[in-house]
Computed example of a mutant assay.
Amino acid sequence: MFGGGGLDPRKMQQMMEQMGIETDDIDAEEVIIRTADEELVFTSPEVQRISAQGQETYQIVGEPDTQATSDSSTDDSADEQAIPDEDVEIVAQRAGVNTEKAREALEAEDGDLAAAISRLE
């Protein structure tokens, strides 16, 4: 694009500034990307924010650890995060129980709302 062969980083930065492109390094400790099927966790990534024409984009450099979102852990805080609070509220309202009992039923049924409601009724 710029013919990058002999361009030193300072000149590249000057050209980007002339075009209205600003970059900013972010001192990130962790970046998490969640999809329906997996969770990508970048520990100690290099993150850069790029601002151009009123838009901000983020560039992440690093190796992610891939985990399935249905991965169960013995850590209680991880279990609580695995079940969305909205699901807990729905089960609690439908079954007429408090949120603690609703969460327990959801955990026992691996997050299945219908099964958790049936279990409590």
Rank of each mutant, 00 (worst) to 15 (best):
A78T: 03
S72G: 04
I60P: 12
R49L: 01
D85I: 02
A102R: 07
V97P: 12
L106P: 15
G111L: 00
D87P: 00
A78V: 05
G54N: 05
S70E: 14
I60C: 10
D76G: 04
V91K: 01
Q67D: 06
P84E: 08
D65E: 13
E109T: 07
Q93M: 06
L106A: 14
E104F: 01
A52Y: 10
T66Q: 13
A68V: 12
I83T: 05
Y58I: 08
E100G: 10
A108R: 09
E89I: 12
A92C: 15
I90V: 12
D87Q: 14
Q59Y: 08
G62Q: 12
S73C: 04
S77G: 01
R49Y: 02
D85K: 10
K101M: 07
S77R: 10
I90H: 09
E56W: 05
E104K: 04
G111C: 12
K101C: 03
I83R: 02
D79W: 06
D85P: 02
E107R: 15
A108H: 05
E109R: 12
T74M: 05
E100D: 11
E80K: 09
D71Y: 08
S51I: 00
G96H: 06
E109F: 08
V91H: 10
A92P: 03
K101D: 12
E104T: 04
G96V: 01
D85Y: 14
E86S: 13
A95D: 14
Q67S: 14
T57N: 01
A95P: 11
I83K: 02
Q53N: 11
E63W: 12
Q81I: 06
D79G: 09
T66M: 14
Q53L: 03
